[in-house]
Design a protein around this nucleic acid. Structure first.
Lengths: 337, 337
DNA sequence: GGTGTTTTCGGTAACGTTACCGGTGAAATT
DNA sequence: AATTTCACCGGTAACGTTACCGAAAACACC
């Protein structure tokens, strides 16, 4: 059906005044009589007038849209980050266009290619695992589109980035295991090539080195981020001749997967094998034994990212910033002997 | 900085041809020489040309945007529905503008009021708990905006709706508890006033009646949807003189909250008090004992909703449809004695 | 009462794109 | 050779809004 929505022309015609006056009345009180203004406002309400953002965007060369590019939304971390982004965007009257890549590089590329930057004021991006699409982002940035990366950042692209402190978080997690008496510590890692995966692995390795503990290649397993990956990874670890006595998982989902595998083998997390995750997914408090973890400031990351993007949009020649937010160790049962 | 993005005028100027020809070349091959077309395409790629959706939207009177209005995104159900919506939207080249209300009626209203329908082809809505904003939706629909409700529908608004089969799901869940030998069955419900809350409660009541089991007002508790609400609700139930021996929770989160409260009191779910939820949140398989539940077709609901909306947008005089998708009983430990 | 100032409004062009109509030249037809 | 047809292209107006300039009216000033 697509009826004709009321426009300022309709208001002008109904009131027998010019569109310019209506336009002015609808925004600021600038150059318009209070009486006239009220007439316009009343008529606008009567006709259910809503401004046409296509038109305003065209003339002002700015929509009020931000694009958000995410690998997925069905997990605690990203959905919380998004909520943080939304909090700031809402306050400033920006709309969020959410694109989910399903962690698929091809889909990511398709989405990027189909974006219309003229109806977009900026972008918030967490790249997919296969991060070879970086040059495409660089191209966009060179074209003048404000972009802020968070969490999964494209390393060689020069723009603002917001991350949790992956290195120190991993370091702290590993030291916590050591403090609790575990000595043979394995690492269930994420896919190779991602910045934060590398940082967490380095934190883990450096903590081991500091305490002069053995680091074995076979104790580091790279795979996906899913719970199932964690489950598989543990199976693989347990086939080893020299088994670890503790596990630092790159995120809580993988830690949970590992714990589920342990349960099947009657291995008790904490008592038999220490487990620590990363994220502080709500599930870590629900699972039994409960899961120690490094809490990520997901909501905060969303807020900061969005704020940074808005600064970027408003100020010209904005200098790229890198913000690193600290995590926090949360001790639970899975690291108590 | 906001550089000037390349337009078809730039392409026309560079190639010394008219904008009309460029416009035609960029879309269909209609009325344009293959050679010219190629020249345009090459130049467009060279200049990083992207169509300005504000301009196309203005002249074609349709953006390619759909608005999605949700109470929250940080839970399994809504994030999965959204992923389903996105799947269909992506296939058809639609963008999704996601608005999160935080289950706050005022915020919901603010968002609705600020929407520009002229830059929106349709809306997908799950209303907030306090569903008194229904007349606002009716107004929008009367203005000709295609709207599809899902899950939390506004009952008296005449438009398409997509829901899971709340009544039968609740009925089946309650019957399952009865079949497992529980007799004093309580219901931890959602807030009053919501359609699906009422449907689930009715399914529960009818199952009790069918099996001639007692139904007590004090065994039905209305509160929020959160895990914490479930925790509180159980506390309240356990202060009763006549305690129930089983609980049907309106969703898994509340069931989990109740189970956590039980754990504190050394009550074993299943053995002492049967528990069944609704959703099939992944956490229900992780918690111990694992939680029986009614699985909701969340992803499917998203897909169907979006498909319905697209039909609505394309066909004029589209008749409102109501789709009800069946749930599925999943037996786990929390209902085994 | 002429001059300046302010208030209030209208007209026009522009944003980037498409729809529509008209025109040119060449090819096809008789 | 004259006419018709067709492929291809250009010009113009329009979408809804705002920015800018100018003008009319009202008011103030000496």
């Amino acid at each position: 059906m697509r009826r004709h929505y009321a426009t300022i022309k309709d208001i002008a015609r109904a009131l027998n005044i010019s569109v310019s006056t209506v336009s002015r009345a609808l925004r600021d009180t600038y150059d318009v009589n209070a009486e006239t203004r009220q007439l316009v406002l009343d008529k606008a309400a009567e006709l259910h007038y809503r401004p046409n953002f296509n038109a305003t965007g065209l003339v002002k060369n700015s929509s009020h849209n931000l694009a958000v590019l995410l690998p997925g939304i069905t997990n605690y971390y990203f959905s919380t980050v998004f909520t943080g982004i939304q909090e700031i965007a809402y306050r400033h009257g920006y709309n969020l266009i959410l694109h989910v890549t399903n962690d698929d590089a091809e889909r990511e590329l398709n989405i990027i290619r189909s974006l219309s930057f003229s109806s977009l004021d900026g972008m918030l991006v967490s790249v997919s695992s296969q991060a070879d699409a970086c040059d495409h982002f660089q191209e966009i940035i060179d074209d003048g589109v404000p972009v802020v990366f968070f969490d999964r950042v494209a390393e060689h692209v020069s723009t603002s980035k917001v991350m949790q402190d992956d290195y120190n978080g991993a370091f702290e997690a590993t030291e916590h295991l050591i403090a609790k008496g575990y000595r043979r510590i394995a690492h269930i890692a994420g896919p190779q090539g991602l910045t934060f995966t590398g940082n967490r692995q380095q934190g883990y390795l450096d903590a081991l080195r500091k305490h002069k503990l053995p680091a074995q290649d076979s104790w580091i397993i790279h795979s996906g981020f899913s719970q199932d990956s964690g489950y598989q990874d543990f199976q693989q670890l347990w086939q080893l001749r020299s088994k670890p006595d503790a596990i630092f998982a790159v995120n809580d989902r993988k830690a949970v997967g590992a714990m589920l595998a342990m349960k099947e083998k009657k291995i008790v997390p904490g008592k038999d094998v220490g487990v620590i995750g990363f994220t502080n997914d709500p599930v870590s408090a629900i699972i039994s034994p409960s899961l120690s973890t490094i809490a990520e400031p997901a909501f905060e990351i969303g807020k900061v990212s969005c704020q940074l993007l808005l600064n970027h949009i408003r100020k010209k020649n904005f200098i790229a910033e890198e913000v690193v937010l600290p995590g926090k160790l949360i001790e639970r049962e899975s690291t108590q002997r």
